[in-house]
Amino acid sequence: MRIPDEVAVRRLGSETILLNLVTGTYFGLDEVGSRFVELLETSGEIAAVHRVMLQEFEVTAEVLEGDLLRLAQEMCAKRLLVVETN
Protein backbone atom coordinates (compact mmCIF):
# COMPACT_ATOMS: atom_id res chain seq x y z
CA MET A 1 0.00 0.00 0.00
CA ARG A 2 1.19 3.50 -0.68
CA ILE A 3 0.11 7.12 -0.81
CA PRO A 4 -0.36 7.96 -4.51
CA ASP A 5 1.64 10.77 -6.10
CA GLU A 6 -1.41 12.96 -6.51
CA VAL A 7 -1.90 13.13 -2.73
CA ALA A 8 -0.09 15.83 -0.73
CA VAL A 9 0.70 15.03 2.89
CA ARG A 10 1.45 17.53 5.63
CA ARG A 11 2.20 16.79 9.26
CA LEU A 12 1.00 19.48 11.71
CA GLY A 13 1.85 18.72 15.30
CA SER A 14 0.42 15.31 16.14
CA GLU A 15 -2.02 15.41 13.22
CA THR A 16 -1.70 14.89 9.49
CA ILE A 17 -3.66 16.30 6.58
CA LEU A 18 -3.90 14.61 3.23
CA LEU A 19 -5.11 16.42 0.14
CA ASN A 20 -6.04 14.62 -3.06
CA LEU A 21 -4.90 17.13 -5.67
CA VAL A 22 -7.15 15.66 -8.33
CA THR A 23 -10.43 15.51 -6.41
CA GLY A 24 -9.66 18.37 -3.98
CA THR A 25 -10.67 16.15 -1.04
CA TYR A 26 -9.11 16.80 2.36
CA PHE A 27 -8.71 14.20 5.06
CA GLY A 28 -7.48 14.77 8.60
CA LEU A 29 -5.76 12.13 10.70
CA ASP A 30 -5.30 12.08 14.47
CA GLU A 31 -2.15 10.90 16.23
CA VAL A 32 -2.84 7.20 15.57
CA GLY A 33 -3.73 7.77 11.93
CA SER A 34 -0.70 10.01 11.48
CA ARG A 35 1.60 7.29 12.80
CA PHE A 36 -0.09 4.76 10.49
CA VAL A 37 0.63 6.93 7.43
CA GLU A 38 4.17 7.67 8.58
CA LEU A 39 5.00 3.97 8.95
CA LEU A 40 3.21 3.03 5.75
CA GLU A 41 5.34 5.51 3.82
CA THR A 42 8.47 3.63 4.87
CA SER A 43 7.35 0.00 4.99
CA GLY A 44 4.37 -0.12 2.59
CA GLU A 45 2.93 -3.17 4.35
CA ILE A 46 0.04 -2.94 6.76
CA ALA A 47 1.22 -6.04 8.68
CA ALA A 48 4.59 -4.41 9.39
CA VAL A 49 2.85 -1.22 10.47
CA HIS A 50 0.64 -3.25 12.79
CA ARG A 51 3.67 -4.88 14.44
CA VAL A 52 5.37 -1.55 15.15
CA MET A 53 2.24 0.22 16.36
CA LEU A 54 1.37 -2.64 18.70
CA GLN A 55 4.60 -1.84 20.56
CA GLU A 56 3.82 1.89 20.68
CA PHE A 57 0.14 2.02 21.63
CA GLU A 58 -1.77 0.48 24.51
CA VAL A 59 -4.21 -1.61 22.49
CA THR A 60 -4.87 -5.25 21.76
CA ALA A 61 -3.71 -6.75 18.49
CA GLU A 62 -7.30 -7.43 17.35
CA VAL A 63 -8.56 -3.91 18.06
CA LEU A 64 -5.56 -2.35 16.35
CA GLU A 65 -5.94 -4.60 13.32
CA GLY A 66 -9.62 -3.66 13.00
CA ASP A 67 -8.88 0.04 13.34
CA LEU A 68 -6.06 -0.01 10.80
CA LEU A 69 -8.07 -1.97 8.26
CA ARG A 70 -11.04 0.38 8.60
CA LEU A 71 -8.76 3.39 8.19
CA ALA A 72 -7.06 1.86 5.17
CA GLN A 73 -10.42 1.08 3.56
CA GLU A 74 -11.68 4.60 4.15
CA MET A 75 -8.51 6.11 2.70
CA CYS A 76 -8.67 3.80 -0.35
CA ALA A 77 -12.29 4.80 -0.93
CA LYS A 78 -11.22 8.46 -0.96
CA ARG A 79 -8.26 7.65 -3.27
CA LEU A 80 -5.78 8.68 -0.59
CA LEU A 81 -4.23 5.22 -0.51
CA VAL A 82 -3.68 2.65 -3.25
CA VAL A 83 -2.99 -1.05 -3.07
CA GLU A 84 0.00 -2.06 -5.12
CA THR A 85 -0.10 -5.44 -6.80
CA ASN A 86 3.19 -7.14 -7.66
Binding site: R10, L12, G13, E15, I17, Y26, G28
Partner: peptide, 11 residues
Protein backbone atom coordinates in the same frame (compact mmCIF):
# COMPACT_ATOMS: atom_id res chain seq x y z
CA UNK B 1 -8.30 25.81 16.11
CA UNK B 2 -5.62 23.15 15.96
CA UNK B 3 -3.31 23.80 12.98
CA UNK B 4 -4.64 20.81 11.04
CA UNK B 5 -8.27 21.90 11.30
CA UNK B 6 -7.24 25.52 10.65
CA UNK B 7 -5.55 24.46 7.41
CA UNK B 8 -8.57 22.57 6.12
CA UNK B 9 -10.82 25.50 6.98
CA UNK B 10 -8.63 28.34 5.69
CA UNK B 11 -7.90 26.80 2.30
Amino acid sequence: HRPALATMTLI
